[in-house]
C-alpha cells in the first residue's frame, strides 16, 4: 500500500468512527425510554392468549410498576364479563344540564392525566333546534344550563359494528362478550388508526406519560380498564368495567346530579335500560354510519 492509499484508508476509518459515535450520541435519549421497558413486558403475549395463571404474575408486575412509577399501592384485578349480561347505556337529553360532573368523575375514577383534564366524556353545548354539531361547543365555561342550549355528552358508544376494532392491525382492541370495546394497553402499538376511524372522538392517545399525584390515584384498578396507561398507547371508555362487572354503576352515572344516565343489562327485559328503550323516544348518534351503538340518547317527554 502506498502513502496516499494509506491515508485514504485512515481517513475512511476516521470518518466511519466519527459517524458511528455521532449516531450513538444522537440516539442517547433513547436510554431514558429504554429504562422504562422490561424484557417481560416486551415478550408479553396478547391478553386473549393468556390463561388466568399466566395473567396473575403480569398483574403483580404492573402493580409493582405502579408503585415504582407513582408511589402508590394499587390493586389490579381482571374481572370477568358476567354470564348473559349485555351492557347498554342511555342518556336523558331532557335533563342533562351540561355541568360536566360526569367528565370529572371519569377523570378521577380512571386515573387520567391531570395536566390535560383528560376524560373519556366530551360534553357538547348544542343550540336548541339543531342537531348540527358544527354549531356545538365543548369548551364552554359559563354557567349551565344556558338559555337556548341543550347538552350532548359523548363518550364511547361501544358500537356493535365498531370501526376501531375493524381497523386495528394487531387486534389490540376488541369487543368483549358483554359488549364493551376494550384495549389491551400492553399490546397496542400506538398507530392511532382507531382514532382516525372512530366517528365519535371516543379514543385518546397517551401523548406522554400520564401525570397523577400519588394521593389522587384510584387504587381500585383492572387490567382492561382504569390502570394507569403507558405512554404511547390508545385508551377509551370501558363502561368502568372494574365497577360494572361487579354489579356497580359506572362512575359517570353516580356523579350525574340530574340522573340523566341509565346503565344496565340489555339482555334483561325487566331492566331499567330496556324500559327506556321501549318507552322513550330514543336515537343513536350518527346512525347512518351503521356502527350500531350501545349508547342511546332519549327525551323524557
Amino acid at each position: 500500500m502506498d502513502e496516499p492509499q494509506k491515508r485514504r484508508v485512515a481517513l475512511k476509518v476516521l470518518g466511519a468512527t466519527l459517524g458511528a459515535s455521532a449516531f450513538a450520541y444522537a440516539m442517547a435519549p433513547v436510554r431514558k425510554w429504554a429504562a422504562g421497558l422490561s424484557v417481560d413486558q416486551f415478550l408479553q403475549r396478547h391478553y386473549r392468549e393468556l390463561t388466568k395463571e399466566e395473567l396473575a404474575p403480569i398483574l403483580r408486575r404492573l402493580e409493582a410498576k405502579a408503585k415504582a412509577d407513582y408511589g402508590r399501592d394499587v390493586v389490579i384485578r381482571d374481572p370477568d364479563p358476567l354470564e348473559g349480561a349485555e351492557f347498554g347505556y342511555a342518556l336523558n337529553l331532557s335533563v342533562c344540564i351540561g355541568c360536566r360532573k360526569c367528565a370529572e368523575a371519569c377523570h378521577v375514577e380512571n386515573n387520567h392525566d391531570r395536566t390535560t383534564n383528560n376524560s373519556y366524556i366530551r360534553v357538547l353545548e348544542m343550540e336548541q333546534g339543531s342537531f348540527d354539531m358544527e354549531r356545538g361547543d365543548a369548551t364552554y365555561e359559563h354557567a349551565v344550563p344556558a338559555p337556548g342550549k341543550y347538552y350532548l355528552p359523548v363518550q364511547c358508544q361501544q358500537c356493535d359494528n365498531a370501526p376501531c376494532v375493524t381497523v386495528c392491525p394487531v387486534q389490540a382492541t376488541w369487543k368483549e362478550p358483554d359488549g364493551i370495546v376494550v384495549v389491551d394497553y400492553d399490546w397496542c402499538i400506538g398507530c392511532r388508526y382507531c382514532e382516525a376511524a372512530c366517528p365519535y372522538h371516543a379514543r385518546r392517545f397517551n401523548w406522554q406519560k400520564p401525570e397523577i399525584p400519588a394521593e389522587e390515584i384510584n387504587p381500585d384498578q383492572s387490567y382492561l380498564s382504569n390502570r394507569v396507561r403507558p405512554q404511547g398507547v390508545v385508551e377509551k371508555c370501558h363502561f368502568c368495567l372494574h365497577r360494572t362487572r361487579v354489579g356497580r354503576n359506572p362512575a359517570c352515572l353516580e356523579a350525574c346530579p340530574t340522573g340523566a344516565r341509565v346503565f344496565g343489562n340489555l339482555a334483561d327485559p325487566s331492566s331499567d335500560i330496556r324500559w327506556v328503550l321501549e318507552n322513550r323516544r330514543v336515537y343513536v348518534l350518527k346512525e347512518e354510519l351503521g356502527t350500531h351503538p350501545r349508547f342511546f340518547y332519549f327525551f323524557e317527554k
Binding site: 449516531f23 450520541y25 440516539m27 442517547a28 435519549p29 425510554w33 392517545f205 406522554q208 404511547g232
Partner: peptide, 13 residues
C-alpha cells in the same frame, strides 16, 4: 435520529 430519540423518550407530545 436525535429528534426521534427525544420523541421516543418524551412521548409524541
Amino acid at each position: 435520529a436525535n429528534a426521534w430519540a427525544h420523541q421516543l423518550a418524551e412521548g409524541m407530545a
